[in-house]
């Protein structure tokens, strides 16, 4: 269980969060959905410890932590592959930076390359592969962190629609096959509805939770699922400020 409670942050006298709280179930897929510029990325900077919060506490499995930098893996919109390393060397970075056992890790990475459809590309350089493959490699690297909590900061928003669809199913693997607890921020409603176990709607600055929805339909889901379609129009209404129907 990840618990964020009472987080407050101000930048240049502008309040980004005041008393923001959130709790995420273990092995669940929690998606934070909000309009662009509502402070989602700042929230991730706070969680990962890049910027400190003014007040508030973070708990992971009951233990209070200054930030999640040491317990979470992180993936963002840019694949952040180092241009001077091959895909394999990039995937091994989390192991290399902590002087881990590279030989064993290489076998593990090899299996992941195969599982995520990158077999045969281990030796390629990042500029030689497409954006989708780069993001798959970033996914392998994320798994090589070997951490149970994964923070996803709009990981697919730089990809084209088709590549995105295949990568969404790979993201699901993180939950079903690798037992990760996932927290993703996105502004793409459909992506949120396809992946989330719990959908958290955020308001613009100061950021607050506007509503929570538990999605029960089994995954992988289809866009034409009536439950999703109903929820989608409801969520859209909330995000755009139209309709005040709180019952659902």
């Amino acid at each position: 269980m990840l618990q964020v409670s009472g987080v407050t942050k101000q930048f240049d006298l502008q309040t980004i969060f005041s008393d923001f709280s959130l709790s995420v179930t273990e092995n669940g897929f929690t998606v934070l959905l909000g309009p662009s510029g509502c402070g989602k990325s700042t929230l991730f900077d706070l969680l990962s410890g890049v910027v400190p919060a003014d007040t508030g506490t973070l708990r992971w499995r009951g233990r209070e932590l200054p930030h999640l930098g040491s317990v979470a893996a992180y993936m963002q919109q840019k694949d952040l592959l180092l241009p001077w390393f091959s895909l394999m060397d990039n995937a091994l970075l989390p192991v290399k930076t902590v002087n881990g056992d590279v030989k064993t890790a290489e076998n593990r990475a090899m299996a992941l390359f195969e599982r995520l459809g990158l077999k045969g590309y281990e030796g390629h350089m990042p500029h030689e592969v497409s954006g989708g493959m780069g993001q798959r490699c970033a996914l392998v690297r994320t798994l090589m962190f070997d951490r149970d909590l994964v923070l996803l900061d709009e990981p697919l928003s730089a990809l084209d629609a088709i590549t995105r669809r295949t990568l969404q199913s790979l993201l699901l693997l993180l939950q079903t096959e690798f037992d990760k607890t996932l927290v993703m921020i996105t502004h793409d409603i459909e992506e949120a509805l396809l992946l989330a176990d719990e959908l958290v709607l955020l308001t613009p600055r100061p950021m607050a939770v506007q509503g929570r929805f538990v999605l029960k339909s089994p995954k992988p889901r289809r866009f034409d699922d009536p439950e999703l379609l109903a929820l989608k129009s409801h969520v859209l209404g909330k995000l755009t400020g139209e309709g005040n129907d709180d019952s659902l």
Partner: peptide, 16 residues
């Protein structure tokens, strides 16, 4: 962003 990535990976000064 690369610096953030290395921070999260727990890379020390020399490794980074």
């Amino acid at each position: 962003d690369f610096q953030t990535l290395f921070r999260l990976m727990g890379g020390g000064f020399w490794k980074t």
